[in-house]
């Protein structure tokens, strides 16, 4: 067990426990703060998986942007301290989701995956080079193979800005 494994266990325990707290805490504001903790530990897992750019993006956009938007939304709730309640289907939903998790992880673990071979294969040297500097190669891939989707995502974000402003605009003015 090396250092990466230890950090992975720590980050995944933090992610699991704070995700459970997001669901089970009664105070909606505290559960939004727990959501930020989940985002940050998922960003740490991205760093461990050689995805440095995605880790930084995760912390900037999720823990910085989306969490702030959600906290603004939380402030609209009237009695924040007891707002995060569950409906009457809580126990049956819990059993269904537990069954879902068990079946999903069973099938994912027992699947015969075709793994990358970083030791003795023809592409081992290139792949090691790739994982030592993923940001560089990711930029090439994003602006070469996926450039149309990249441009359309910017159009999507512009449309969302205009659309959300048009929705919340007061009609009487």
């Amino acid at each position: 067990m090396n250092l990466t494994d230890i950090f992975f266990i720590i980050f995944s325990l933090i992610a699991f426990s704070s995700a459970l707290l997001v669901v089970f805490i009664q105070d909606l504001f505290k559960s939004a703060l727990m959501l930020v903790v989940t985002f940050i530990s998922v960003g740490g897992i991205f760093f461990l998986l050689n995805a440095e750019f995605l880790g930084v993006i995760q912390i900037l956009i999720y823990a910085g942007g989306i969490a702030i938007i959600i906290i603004f939304g939380v402030l609209m709730t009237k009695d924040m301290a007891t707002a995060n309640t569950s409906n009457i289907f809580m126990f049956i939903n819990g059993q269904i989701c537990l069954l879902f998790f068990v079946l999903l992880s069973y099938f994912l673990i027992n699947e015969e995956w075709f793994l990358l071979d970083l030791v003795n294969s023809s592409y081992a040297e290139q792949a090691k080079n790739l994982f030592s500097n993923t940001t560089d190669h990711l930029a090439t891939l994003l602006l070469k193979n996926w450039v149309i989707a990249f441009e359309f995502s910017s159009v999507l974000l512009l449309a969302v800005i205009i659309g959300s402003l048009a929705i919340v605009k007061d009609k009487n003015e």
């Binding site: 995944s12 992610a15 699991f16 995700a19 459970l20 997001v22 669901v23 909606l28 559960s31 939004a32 959501l35 989940t38 998922v42 897992i45 999720y62 989306i66 959600i70 939304g73 939380v74 609209m76 709730t77 707002a83 995060n84 309640t85 569950s86 409906n87 289907f89 809580m90 939903n93 819990g94 269904i96 989701c97 537990l98 879902f100 998790f101 999903l104 992880s105 994912l108 673990i109």
Partner: peptide
């Protein structure tokens, strides 16, 4: 397995929570 667990917790929240913003947070999970 970590990904499946986070997804199951989020799914539980989406099916169970009564506040719209809590449902949104679970979708983010």
């Amino acid at each position: 397995t970590l990904s499946a667990g986070l997804f199951a917790i989020g799914l539980f929240g989406v099916l169970t929570k009564r506040n719209l913003i809590a449902v949104l947070m679970c979708i983010e999970l």
